[in-house]
Design a protein around this nucleic acid. Sequence first.
DNA 1: CATCCACTGGAAGATATGGCGA
DNA 2: TCGCCATATCTTCCAGTGGATG
Length: 410
Amino acid sequence: MRRFQRNASIFADKDALRESYTPPEIEERDEEIADYMDALQPVIDGWEPDNIFLYGNTGVGKTAVTDRLMEQLEEDAEEYDDIDVTVFSVNCKTLSSSYQVAVQLVNAMRPDGGEIAATGHPKQTVFRMLYDELEDIGGTVLLILDEIDSIGSNDELLYELPRARANGNLEHTKVGIIGISNDFKFSDQLDPRVQDTLCERELHFPAYEADELVSIVESRAEIALKEDAGDEGAIRLCAALAAKDRGSARQALDLLRLSGEQAERADEDVITEDHVEAARQELERERVEEGIRQLTHHGHLSLLSIVSLAAADDTPARTRTVFERYQNVCETMGISPLSRRSIHNHVKDLVMLGILRERDNNSGSGMRGNFNTYELDVPFDSALSALAGELDIDERASELRRLADINDVA
DNA sequence: CATCCACTGGAAGATATGGCGA
DNA sequence: TCGCCATATCTTCCAGTGGATG
């Protein structure tokens, strides 16, 4: 039996690089914090709060700043006897409708054991329950709806809540909504009346610049890493890679954490640029696998079709080719195929997930009309291995046969 | 330049699933 | 158990779109 041995240790406090960690001071967001505090001022003054809409890419500090300010607000409100602030926070990432958000809010407010199920209730009943809970709490209630864009245009809740007092649904409680979105176009797709009320105060968090990211990563590295464990170049590379991608501090810090793990695994006590590069690939692979895992069965089969086209060097492929291959795949597996339109949707989903790259109409000779072509946007091997994990044994066997067939022909 | 092709992508409706209260 | 309710996933239908063709 091998023995457990402690690796060369890189980290002093690894948790300081995790998403759940809130740094003592938030850097490079002074202006945004000032605006944000200004928008929250009515709460302390005892007025009905303004609704606030916050937008900016992932990892630019929206959630971190919000968490800090809410702590501060609750603390400062204690100084005033007539102010009673309660904050509820819901992440809407997996919630696709107003209804589901309302259910989550009710469950957040109810004591353990009193939760309601996610389906089955009439919509108005759930809203009623929400108002009852809010009314019980009283004072000022701030509702933080993180990643609110995932409810799409299904925005009744955002229409109802700000009007609850005017409509007589609430008397004792003042409600303020803080909507946080990664998608700056989100407010465009809302009902204009909802836009007006939700976006009373609009705050934009811009992406971090490269030099801002460097200083964020450096100061966090000081807490998280042991002395001299981080090579200057490696730290700058983490910041540079993230800056080039989406300007996300989250991404830069994830990179640093994974780089450290790479170094530990190699039993080295300094993080180098090579470790960062390895971490970047690991992060990319995780992203692909995560994306593929959440697809439906036919989504997997659609991807499989494209993977098999790629194996035969037939990509980029147009929709018709993909669909024909998909029908073949289904036939080999004894599954009845879906319609063309559905496969079109699945392929689009894959594009959204960044697994496929779409190019429009690069028509050569003899190709008429308006069409897109698709090809893998991730390494062939990672697509194949992620896919292999999702299909069952029978399917994997026929997939292998198929790929073997293609190689024979080619 | 009209017409056609091969799609794209929106919309509405069907079907199945799973949960609720009575 | 039954009649509701919300949702996810498909199907069907169809109005565009824009390059190719004659």
